[in-house]
């Protein structure tokens, strides 16, 4: 499924947050959204997912304007994973993943085989099948994030949006989560802070600065010392990987 944004503008009161962003994401692509704090990554992600309404501009999913698709139908096409969403409710892994079926179920419909299959596949996909009875409160940060992704998968979406899914995770789990997302047969758009991880796991990288797209292209095209100095205000050396390998960034202390 393709995602196409045209001239998106959005702001709070008189302060513009997203200024005139246009973006085209092809089917099956994994796109990384990077940029300094406050550059509008999260806001852009929410505009693309239809969780915020743009002041002007449109988002199209497979050529259809999402403003004209009812919210419930939209949630069968695209899923959104918040950064470390929490709850005090005493739910199990199974309960949480079943929530992903919400857009597929009517108010009183029973639990169907299709629902069951979607949940089981999602559980297998994130390797939590043996943990389905476990209470949410006893999961580690990495496990919680995996369950959130499984819940998004249970929606059976074509497009997945992830807002800093690796926040607060150790490096092993960061790589595990991103490898998992990349292996999914989905179009995914991920807001990320870690530039090396973005380079390793994304087909394309979009660099945001003050709500505008500063650069867009493959990691090797986009991640240059000049851009990192301008946008992130750091000096860095970049080693190009051989063949398919991702470029590697080494930041200088000064």
């Amino acid at each position: 499924m393709t995602v196409k944004a045209q001239n998106l503008i959005w702001g709070v009161k008189r302060k513009p947050i997203v200024r005139d962003v246009s973006l085209h994401v092809a089917k099956g692509e994994t796109v990384g959204l990077i940029g300094p704090n406050g550059s509008g990554k999260s806001s852009l992600l929410r505009l693309l997912a239809g969780l915020k309404k743009p002041a002007s501009g449109t988002v199209e999913i497979n050529g259809k304007n999402i403003a004209q698709i009812p919210r419930k139908a939209l949630s069968r096409e695209l899923a959104f994973v918040q950064q470390s969403a929490a709850t005090d409710t005493n739910v199990t892994v199974n309960d949480v993943i079943r929530l992903g079926r919400t857009p597929h179920r009517s108010a009183l419909a029973g639990w169907t085989e299709a629902d069951d299959n979607a949940v089981n596949q999602a559980l297998d996909r994130v390797d939590m099948a043996t943990r389905r009875r476990q209470p949410w409160q006893t999961l580690s940060g990495g496990e919680r994030q995996r369950v959130h992704i499984a819940r998004a998968l249970a929606q059976e979406p074509q497009v997945m949006f992830l807002d800093e899914p690796t926040n607060h995770l150790d490096i092993h789990h960061q790589i595990e989560i991103l490898r998992m997302v990349r292996a999914l047969d989905l179009t995914s758009i991920i807001a990320l802070h870690d530039l090396n991880l973005a380079a390793m796991f994304c087909d394309r990288i979009v660099v945001l600065e003050s709500g505008e797209i500063r650069a867009c292209g493959t990691p090797a095209e986009v991640l240059t010392p000049a851009l990192l100095r301008d946008v992130f205000r750091v000096s860095a050396e970049i080693t190009m990987g051989a063949e398919d390998a991702a470029p590697h960034i080494r930041f200088a202390a000064q």
Binding site: R46, L51, R71, A73, Q82, T87, V96, L99, G100, P103
Partner: peptide
């Protein structure tokens, strides 16, 4: 669907 908050509920189509 409100288990993880309002925005999460909206993302689930509520």
């Amino acid at each position: 669907a409100f288990t993880f908050g309002d925005e999460d509920a909206a993302a689930l189509g509520v």
